[in-house]
């Protein structure tokens, strides 16, 4: 099990991840699972019907909108960043939170670097599998470094234009 950094109550803490990422041709193991979208499409309904805790991993070229009917029952949506500079996951997270109303865990997997933590948090990610070995303390430092923001996003920050209006 890998270490996971989770946002909770305004802070960040590390915990051992109790979800298993399932490879497509692997038999379905016991416990909590994260499946690819393709595997989810074949096995997802059955697993959800069994009351299993299921997450889906979305690759950058896959549309999070495809998960819409399942979202209320999904424990995790893991957004994959094959390279840290592949910014599609940021849009996927934003859409999940602001448009599809998803309230479960949005997790960053792949090349997940501390330097992006602040922007990821703003887009609605709340769990991270850091690939740079960052500690939750380092993560929190980056996320909280900026006192103000200029734009509305999927987080609780009040953008500068609204604060100026007394918002």
């Amino acid at each position: 099990m890998a270490m996971l950094i989770k946002a909770e109550g305004g802070g960040f803490h590390a915990e051992m991840d109790d979800f298993q990422s399932v490879v497509d041709d692997q038999p379905i193991p016991d416990g909590k699972l994260i499946l690819s979208l393709k595997r989810f499409e074949t096995d997802g309904e059955v697993l959800l019907a069994q009351g299993r805790a299921v997450g889906v991993r979305i690759e950058p070229d896959e549309a999070v909108e495809d998960l819409t009917p399942f979202l209320p029952r999904l424990a995790v949506v893991a957004l994959s960043l094959p390279k840290f500079r592949d910014g599609r996951a940021f849009s996927s997270a934003h859409i999940l939170r602001t448009r599809l109303g998803y309230t479960g865990q949005v997790r960053a997997v792949g090349e997940v670097l501390r330097e992006q933590a602040g922007m990821m948090a703003r887009c609605g990610f709340d769990a991270f599998e850091p690939s740079d070995g960052s500690s939750p303390e380092a993560w929190a430092k980056v996320v909280n470094r900026h006192r103000h923001v200029y734009q509305s996003a999927a987080d609780h920050h009040v953008p500068a234009f609204a604060r100026r209006l007394g918002g």
Binding site: M119, Y150, A153
Partner: peptide, 8 residues
């Protein structure tokens, strides 16, 4: 500036 979604 520092747009969270459009920086990558």
């Amino acid at each position: 500036s520092l747009h969270p979604e459009f920086s990558f």
